[in-house]
Structures are given as structure tokens and as C-alpha cells.
Design a protein around this nucleic acid. Sequence first.
RNA 1: GGGCCCAUAGCUCAGCGGCAGAGCGCCGCCUUUGCAAGGCGGAGGCCCUGGGUUCAAAUCCCAGUGGGUCCA
Length: 924
Amino acid sequence: MSDLEREYQLDYFEEHGFHRKQCSECGAHFWTLDGERETCGEPPCEEYDFIDDPGFDESLSLEETREQFLSFFEERGHERIDPYPVAANRWRDDVLLTQASIYDFQPHVTSGESPPPANPLVVSQPCIRMQDIDNVGKTGRHTMAFEMGGHHAFNADEGTDYAYEGEVYWKDQCVEHCMDLLAEVGAPREDVTLIEDPWVGGGNAGPAFEVIYRGLELATLVFMQFEQDPEGDFEMKDGNTYSRMDRRVIDTGYGIERWTWMSQGTPTVYEAVYPEMIDFLKDNAGLDYSEREAEIVHRAATLAGHMDIDEAEDMESARDNIADQLDVSTSELVDLLEPLEDIYAIADHCRTLAYMLGDNIVPSNVGTGYLARMVLRRTKRLVDNVGVDAPLDELVDMQADRLGYENRDTIRDIVRTEVEKYRETLDRGGRRVRQLADDYAQEGDPIPVRELIELYDSHGIQPDMVEEIAAEKGVAVETPDDFYALVADRHGSGQAFDEETERPYADRLEELPDTDRLYYENQQRTEFEAVVLEVFEREDERFDVVLDQTMFYPEGGGQPPDHGTLSTDDVTAEVSDVQIVDGIILHTTDEDPGKGEFVRGQIDATRRRRLMAHHTATHVVVHAARQVLGEHVRQAGAQKGVDSSRIDVSHYESVSREQVEEIEHRANDIVRSNVQVKQEWPDRHEAEEEHGFDLYQGGIPAGENIRLIHVAEDVQACGGTHVARTGDIGTIKVLGTERVQDGVIRITFAAGDAAVQATQDTENALYEAAEVLDVAPEEVPETAERFFTEWKARGKTIEELKEELAEVRAAGGDEGEEVDVGDETAVVQRLDADMDELRATANALVEEGKIAVIGSGRDGATFVVAVPDGSAVNAGEVVSELASKVGGGGGGPPDFAQGGGPDVDALDDALEEAPDVLQQVANA
RNA sequence: GGGCCCAUAGCUCAGCGGCAGAGCGCCGCCUUUGCAAGGCGGAGGCCCUGGGUUCAAAUCCCAGUGGGUCCA
């Protein structure tokens, strides 16, 4: 027996008479009470066996199933916790979306650094899995959005140093809970199989069971107990070796939708979970089946379990197979099923969107926002394809309503805005493709792959849309099978990585104690005393000084470091930078204060005061922006400064001037109310419980306790320094807003005396403009407009006058030298004027049927040569010859050319020779 | 965060070193009993901004601004 195999030998199985068997079809090992059983029970080894014959005693809705699950585990000692947002990047930076209930507790709880909110606990966690997107609607069981029921327990050996300790429960009790729940809802224990299926992920691993009942996987029980270790004894399926940990985590996932489905026995999971929406969509799309057709569709669902598609070929063969068994042609089957599959997918995608937008994800071209946009566009395509004519925002709202979101108006607004954006993209794309198709139609060539990639990558146009439009124009398009791989190639594989600044003395730092952070004890103090623990000499001949305690704030959370001085009786060292490395604060100075010395620290009070005012103001502005723009607004990055600060917030359209003014008003209301700015260090889980994940707008701190800053009603986790009362900010002035990317607005603002300064700067610009225009400041806009209009009119008049002047000159004819070139007449003339005038004059001469050679000495030597239609002279050649004589070049079409060079002195000589040049060119 | 694309008349776009263009829309006139339509003429441009290269830049290069799009 292998070591891993031993991990599945549970006392529970022994006591209850389970047998370990090997599936006669797939060879997997599984546990069962039924000694006669031959197969593991999971498709394709067995088929669904609950369609029209529900596997549980009672038919339940999704809500009822969820409640049943949660209360079952509550009764067995688990604490029920609220689900987390679907936007997992709110509390962790390694993933975008929540894909499993265990995500809620990664990385800090599973690693043992932070305690879980309760132990053991149970949660029903909304999840989104984009990787299943192609299966949704087709297999009858895949959904992009789903609820994962999870009961979790976190165990650690006695005497370990983790945030939790002791044994809550482990494998035996986990399996027992699962079997008991199944029995309670009416699944005979004999019909349940547990397939051994080791789990690996994120550097951890462990044995796991898939729990199968009547052909459907209802739960996965994972026992996280190994960690990756080159010396380890356990080799897992990823090829790495693992060793046992002194921590063990119970990680279970129950598909709540599947339990609902099992309880109802509907043909697909979709009809069990949101029957009203499916009915609505079917009705709206006008789907109507004859009795025979309905029967085929119904029976196909039972067989659809076989369809789990990664590749198109799989799907086709699965379809053929099903058609065969139902005795219909594959094409008829496809025609019957496809509209239905679209409808299932629409319902699921709308639920996904409701989760995303309900959790305040704003569609964008980056991050979770991009995923939301992709889902929305895909949904819109499906809706159009199947002929549902209800607006998408209404469909999403049906799901948002069902899921109980309160920001439904904003959700609808966002969906409408997005649909409109998509429509514009399609319009633009359509025009582009039509034009391209016309071009290639003329050539008689097919549209090449290069163009297809360009259309998709740069313009967002799917190849199938190109094919459709091209077909109308009778142009061929060959979409290669590896199209998306070609697109990926275009993006290259070069992964940029930023180099960690390696400190030469990194190992010596580890021996030093964490620096005491005095700036949290009293944020208003600017002086302190400390002992120099260590001084490191830097490569740039400056010093990094470590103290036992400090008032200096190190750079962090978008707040720049403090400046100031460290003085002993002998030296005063200027502090120009402050950084924190693993709890130790490094003061970069220009002098060595001496290790072991006693120093007085003095921070630059003005700089600090301005930074504090800006930092507190940042919280105020975000809060005000949220009130004005909506609840979905959250911070997406911030940089505080001495003169101004900026914050990036998520928002789905650009900000109007009125909204900016409103934000400014509300922000200053908070300043004037002069409320106290409070800091506290509560337990992180209690803080999350009370305030939600919006706490973490500026990033996610580690540790059991977190620092919260209260400014009026606004609460945020924040490590920065703040003023004592909002009144200390003085005033807040929004300097500008810009769209930094789609879905993200940057607000630049100034606080305190920086705000006054900024206002004065703007005023000064206005005053200067007023002075130049010689009007009162308030008349500047009107005057500027009038001047601009007049300026344009004058330009036009000048143009006209130049032309008239040129005509008059040409008619006068006395200034230029007339020469004969063959049977034509040429006029050679020097006229020191700009290019426009030269051109006008030349044109006027040509009108009279003469060849014009005009030279100018203004701004270097320039020539214009123009000839009438049918002239023997090529103007381009003449110019190029003349220009070479003044050290330059020139050219142009045969009838009108221009050129020149820097050598003005040679201009007259060049014009002298012009008749000869003309003659030569005419004879050539 | 990165890649790519785009910016020219009110709109949609062409021009890709050498005199700023087309279609639609707008204005006027003609044809018509009237409408649909047709004919003729006209107005309408800081060719996104700022640098650079060049005799010459809407056009090439760099930077910025605004928009679009794909990917992680």
C-alpha cells in the first residue's frame, strides 16, 4: 500500500463497513457501502439517473437548499459566516475572482498567520469560474456563477506558533458530516460513492474525495495536509514531492446548485435554479417545440452529462453520439438544442453579471472590470443570436433582484452604458470590415489572416463577424484554427519583472529588532529622542541609520516619507529618505551619527503637516466622490504629495464639471464640520464584520489587528499619518479630473495652504490672460472666443488677398523676365514672399498659359515651378536642378513643384541660369 | 500593468513627404402641379497639442492629450 493510499484508510469507513473498490470502467479507486458495485458512479462510467426521478425526498429551491446546508452544519457546531465578495482582489492580490469558498481564507488563514473568523465555520460563497465558460448551457450542469457551500476547519499541532491551535476535526468527521447530510435529505448511503482524487494547488496538497450520487458529483472533500518539499515522501500528480505539515485544513466544496438540481430532477441545472428566468427567455425568444421535439430535447439532457468540452471535436463527437442514441440526425439535434443552450447561458451569464456589478465591479479594460466587460459582451451576443428582445439591463436586473442586491439602479445604468459602448464598437467595426471587404473584393483576394488579427486585437471584432460581413460582399475569409494562438503570439512572451532593490546588508538587518513606531502614538509630535542601533554605509556614500524608535514616517500607502534631521552633540545629519524593511525603519542620511549614539530627531514639520492634511483629505475626497458618483466608487490607487495629491477611483463614465463642484462642496462640508479623526486597532475579522471589505481600498494589511482611520462616517484600513480634526485640513480644492483608463477616474486635488496656492496659480493665469487681452477677467472667455473667430476670418482674408495680389502681379508682367522655351513662354521672377504667395503667383501665371519659375529669398531660398497642361517642361526636374544650386533639394508632380535650399546668396545666380535649365529640361 | 490601433469638414472616412479631398448632411438656384428624386453652385478645416527631421510635414520621428481594443 502506498503512503498516499494509506491516507484514505479512515476509521469511519472501517466502522461503517465501506469497501474500497476500483472502477471497472475508468480504473479510479472509490469507497462504497455496496459490495456489489462495479463502477465509480460518475459519468462517463455511468449516466445521470435522477432526471425526472429526483434523488432527494423534497424538491427545494436554491434558497431552501442553501439554508438546509448552512443550518445542518450550524447544528453540528459550525459558525455561519457571511459570504465574501466575488471580487477576490479586494482582499488578495494573486487572483481576480472568488472561485471557491477556501479563497476567503487564503492566504493568511490557511498559512496560519491569521485566525479564521470562526473555527469550524460554514459559508455559502458565490463564485465565478470563467474557465468553464464554453461549457455553460451545453452540458446541463456547468455554470459560470455558482454558490459553493463550504464547511471548513483549521487544525494545527499543539505547541505550534500559528494563529490557531489544536484539532477541531479531521477526515473521519468530515466524511461523516457529508454522509449524514446526504442521508438526512434522502440519499440512501448505499448509493453514494467516494472517489479518491488527490488534490494539488498553490504549493499545498492532500488526499480528497469526490462525492458522487446517481451520476452527479455533489461535493468535494479536500484534506489539505501536505506542502511542497523537494525532500518530501509523497509524490503527487503534479510530479512534485510533498511532506506532511503541522497544520491541516478541511476544505470542502458542495455545489449548492447541484443539490437543488438533484432535489428537483429537472433536465438541466438551469431549470432548477432559475426556472422563472428560463421560462421568460424561452417565451421571449418564441421557442416552441412539438411534442416529439420536446421529447428529444428532454432525453438529450439525460445524455448530456457526457458533454464536457475542452475542444470542438469533443463536442461534435458527443453530439453525434447523443443523436445516434436518440435516433435523430445530428443537424436536427443541433437545431433543436442550440437556442435552448443559448438561453441557459444567458440566464447564467446574467447571474454572473449581477454578482460582479452587485459587488461594485465597474466594467473596464483592466482587471475584474475587463472580465465583466467580456461576460457582458458575450451575453449580448447570445441575446441577439437567439432573438431575445428584452434589454440586457432588464435581464441582469432579474438576477440582481433574485440575489437581493440593493444597488440595482446603478447596475442597470452600468449595463446600459456598456451595451451602448459595445454597440458603438460594433458599428465602428462593421464600417471598417465593410470597407476592407470592398478593397479586397476589387482585388478579388480573400481577406488575409493578418487583417483578421488586426481587426480582433485592435478593434475587438470577432472573426465570425468579419466572415458574415465579407460574405455579403462576396469576399472569402479563411479563419485559421489557431486564430487565438496567433493573437497571443502578437503579444509576445516577454514578462517584465521589476527588480527588488537588493540591500547589500540584508542579512544583518534580520538580527535587528523591529523599530518602535512613535508616529502612531502621537501623530502631531515632531521631535523625539532615540538610540542609534546600527549605521550602514550605502553605495552612494550616504548612510542608512537604524534607531530603536522613531517619529519619522517611512514611505508607504501612497504617502511619501518624512524629512528632517538626526542630531548628536557633534553632528546634525539630514534625513532625505525613510523606508521600512520587514519592520525595521531605515533613515537615509548624509552624515554618520555614530552607532550607539544618543540622537535627537526633528522632523520637517511643514512637510509633515502638508502630507497629513493631504492624506486625511484623500479619505474625505473618496468619501465625497462616493456620495456624488455612487456606491460603486472605490479607490484604485493614490499618491499623496506636498503640493497636491491624486486618487484614482473606479467609475464608469467621465465626471462632469457639476459633479466635480458637488464633490468639492461635500468634501469641504466635512472639513468645516471639524470632526475628530480617530484611529483604532481592532481585530481584523471584527472590523471586516462591521465595515465590510470596503475597508481595504488602499490595500490589504497583514496581521491579526488592523489600523482603522475614521473620518466622519468614512472608515478605512490605513497606515498613514493624519491630522487630528478635519478642520485642520483647512480647505480642499479639486484641481482636475481625467480618465486614466476606461472605468477609472483620476481626481487631482490640493489641501490646506497647497489648495490656496493652487487657486492662486489658476487665478494668476486668468489675470495674465486678461491683461494680455486688455479686458476684465470675467470677460476673458467671451473675448477669447471673439478673437479666435476674428483670427480665423483674417486668415481667410489674407489668403484671398494673396491670390488677388498674385493675379495682379501676373497680369502686370513687368517684374519678371519673359523667356521663350521652345514655342512656350516662361516667366522667371524673384519675389521675396512666403510659399503661399509663390504658389498663388505661379498659379496665376499658369492660368495665362505661361510657365512660371518663381524664386524667393525669404526664409532661405525657395522655388516654385508650375507649368500649364501639355507643357514640354517637367516642373519637378526644373526645381530639383535649381534647388541643387542653392544647396538643397526639391521635387513634386510634373505640373507643379517646389523646392529650395539654405544658400540665399546663390539665388540670383540660380535664377539667371533658369532659362538654360528650362531649355535643357524641355529638350530632354 | 503590458501590447496594438485610431485622431483630417457637422457625420463617416480617403489622402501617408510636394496646391487639403470624397460621400452624406447644410445653404442657394434650376427642373417638377406637388412629392420622391435629379441638375448646377456655395459655405464649412489651429489636418488633436508641443517638439524634432527636411528646401518642404496632415503625411516621417519623439513626447503629451483624448478615444478604441486585446491580453494578464
